[in-house]
């Protein structure tokens, strides 16, 4: 993946945001998913949907917004997520050898 194609350069979603809805983008370096959520929707729902789509286990994925780990009970309001913000998804890391 080249630098030019990094997630930050992606155009915003075409449709205009509904009143009171926030468009957020979930990216794990390969895929991007756009979500339209209410400000009060807990992120647990978004996480589950993302994992279902990507076929991942919720336990093995970490969600980050502006360097902060997102918890399931967080909402766009509590984290101050603005329209068009990106949320990074990281695979869990493991090490032992």
């Amino acid at each position: 993946m080249s630098n030019d194609a990094s997630p930050n350069h992606m155009p915003p979603p075409a449709d205009a945001p509904l009143l009171g809805h926030i468009n957020i983008k979930l990216t794990d370096n390969n895929n991007e998913l756009f979500f339209k959520v209410k400000p009060t929707t807990p992120f647990g729902k978004v996480m589950e949907t993302f994992c279902k789509r990507q076929g991942k286990d919720l336990k093995s994925v970490r969600f980050l917004f502006e360097g902060q780990r997102i918890r399931k009970e967080d909402t766009c309001e509590t984290l101050d997520v603005q329209d068009g913000d990106a949320i990074e998804v990281h695979q869990e890391q493991l090490g032992g050898t």
Partner: peptide
């Protein structure tokens, strides 16, 4: 640093083996 950083770039990421 974890070697999983690199494998995370691919679809089938292993999550790394070493810290």
């Amino acid at each position: 640093v974890n070697d999983g950083f690199y494998s995370d770039e691919f679809e089938q990421s292993s999550g790394g083996i070493h810290w």
